[in-house]
């Protein structure tokens, strides 16, 4: 099976964000203030402090990275479409 790209990424691709605490680099997309996609890679997973400290089971997400993404959105580093 061919892996196809998400049709939504055609208009607005993922953009790089760096965690302000640990420096982990991820790709982020926000379709609104409350929607967030985060693409990690092996480097980021190895760098993230909360990820490394997490036990087995589902890792819900890194709080520091979350804050960094919010800040990047507020600073205009990643685009957030206006609500219509």
């Amino acid at each position: 099976m061919t892996i196809r790209p998400d049709n939504r990424l055609l208009d607005a691709p993922m953009q790089p964000v760096t965690c302000r605490r640990c420096g982990a680099g991820v790709e982020v997309r926000k379709a609104s203030w409350h929607q967030t996609s985060v693409q990690w890679n092996a480097d980021a997973a190895g760098t993230c402090q909360e990820r490394r400290a997490a036990g087995p089971g589902v890792f819900p997400g890194c709080a520091a990275l979350r804050d960094s993404i919010v800040q990047a959105a507020l600073d205009g580093e990643i685009a957030v479409p206006e609500e219509s």
Binding site: S32, Q35, T36, S37, V38, Q39, W40, A42, A45, F59
Partner: peptide, 8 residues
């Protein structure tokens, strides 16, 4: 690789 998606 890890992917997260939070829906609005």
């Amino acid at each position: 690789e890890r992917f997260e998606f939070e829906l609005d």
